[in-house]
Design a protein around this nucleic acid. Structure first.
Lengths: 152, 152
DNA sequence: GTTTCATGTAACTTTAAATAGTACGTGAAA
DNA sequence: TTTCACGTACTATTTAAAGTTACATGAAAC
């Protein structure tokens, strides 16, 4: 399967949206994410339902952040896009009759469960405000302003 | 992409191999794994190079365990099959010019790194002997012997 | 020695899951 | 009433694992 980059992509466009202030269209966000506008709408749909972003149709419409960046964590965003699978590996058979396979699956699942739990805790510790702050630190390190940072 | 079940599959056949004692052919192992003999050979090839299993051609040939089960961990097996990707998610762009995306990637990568490290530690704590013991405990719980446990 | 069995491997096809794209409907502003 | 922008159903493409075919190699049986 393809690698899932929805979380990476949506966090990226959320921060751009926050920097912008004014509504951004799916087309603009798609350019930043180097993808299609429909993909953007699809992913942001979940965030809208969760109340993190707002969308307007028609002239001057587009997407805006609907909540303080400090009140949104990466975990919230992960949940909002539908909690996609985290682990690339799985069991060959989910409910095996073979007792050998049951023993193997149990051991693997233990590890996967712990790793997923840790990952979600980590995600819950990072707010979008923290990401924005990191972005501004990176700008400062290069003696740039947000205006000068054209998307590439 | 399809979900990666190589680790699950190879652990399964390794334990069957150990239970058997005598060499098992790729065909036999493939039946247990419900897959193709070539797939089995492909995966076991890595284990052979790592010295965990031995293979013989010709009459009476097949695969045997080449080391004490207590001396092989799930981590060893994971390494031997080529350390496949553990996380299902990745960054949209690996080396982005966009500083926003750099900030996002850095945060995500932190989490992924920690989760992968934990998973590998867990894998390193489980030996094949422990898995075999768990299998026998499951047999005992059902009042069966290994002989009676026909593969299903 | 030649037949049979089994691994070793390259090349190709199929499949599952994410991503990309097309088409068209809806509602708001110009 | 035209244009813009989201909403969404449907289809196509892409990626990596899994499956398959074909054939070479080497060992044991006869």
């Amino acid at each position: 399967m393809k690698r899932d980059s929805r979380l990476s992509g949506v966090l990226h466009v959320l921060l751009h949206m926050a920097e912008q202030g004014t509504p951004m269209t799916s087309e603009q966000l798609a350019r930043a994410m180097q993808t299609n506008a429909v993909v953007v709408r699809r992913i942001l749909g979940g965030l809208r339902e969760a109340g993190f972003v707002h969308s307007e149709k028609g002239h001057g419409g587009g997407w805006t952040i609907a909540r303080d960046l400090a009140a949104i964590t990466m975990r919230d965003v992960y949940d909002a896009i539908g909690r996609p699978r985290l682990m690339a590996m799985g069991n060959r058979t989910e409910a095996p009759g073979c007792l050998v396979e049951q023993a193997v699956n149990a051991a693997l699942d233990d590890g996967f469960r712990d790793a997923e739990a840790l990952l979600l805790v980590r995600f819950g510790e990072v707010t979008l405000a923290a990401l924005a702050a990191d972005f501004h630190a990176r700008l400062a390190a290069r003696n740039l302003t947000a205006q000068e940072h054209i998307h590439g």
